[in-house]
């Protein structure tokens, strides 16, 4: 990956982007236990595979989601959090 497609600005050089880490489901901070919250903040299965990640296009200030294979660095899809694709990743790449 040397180029990444921003859902708003199109394909741009990777140097314009900042990696925001893996996307994970946030538990409700009001109802979750201390351990559940700590697990959300710190613990992850970071084994390689296809991951949903936050990325940031810095010149335009756009946060978005990328689905990326962290073993091969192939990007399968990028989209705005508010606008996920209808099909899932497996179908898209098949």
């Amino acid at each position: 990956m040397k180029l990444l497609k921003c859902p708003i600005n199109g394909t741009r050089p990777l140097s314009e982007f900042i990696f925001g880490g893996e996307w994970r489901d946030m538990p409700n901070p009001d109802t979750s236990s201390d351990l559940e919250w700590a697990s959300y903040v710190h613990y992850r299965d970071n084994a390689p595979g296809i991951k949903k990640e936050w990325w940031y296009h810095s010149p335009s200030g756009t946060w978005f989601i990328a689905e990326r294979n962290t073993l091969t660095d192939e990007v399968l899809a990028t989209y705005l959090y508010s606008n996920p694709p209808a099909t899932n990743v497996e179908e898209q790449s098949a």
């Binding site: 880490g21 697990s39 710190h42 613990y43 992850r44 299965d45 970071n46 084994a47 390689p48």
Partner: peptide, 14 residues
């Protein structure tokens, strides 16, 4: 992370 996955252990390692 690959070895930890074998024992289902999560860590903050990236």
């Amino acid at each position: 992370p690959r070895i930890c996955k074998m024992v289902d252990l999560k860590t903050p390692i990236v």
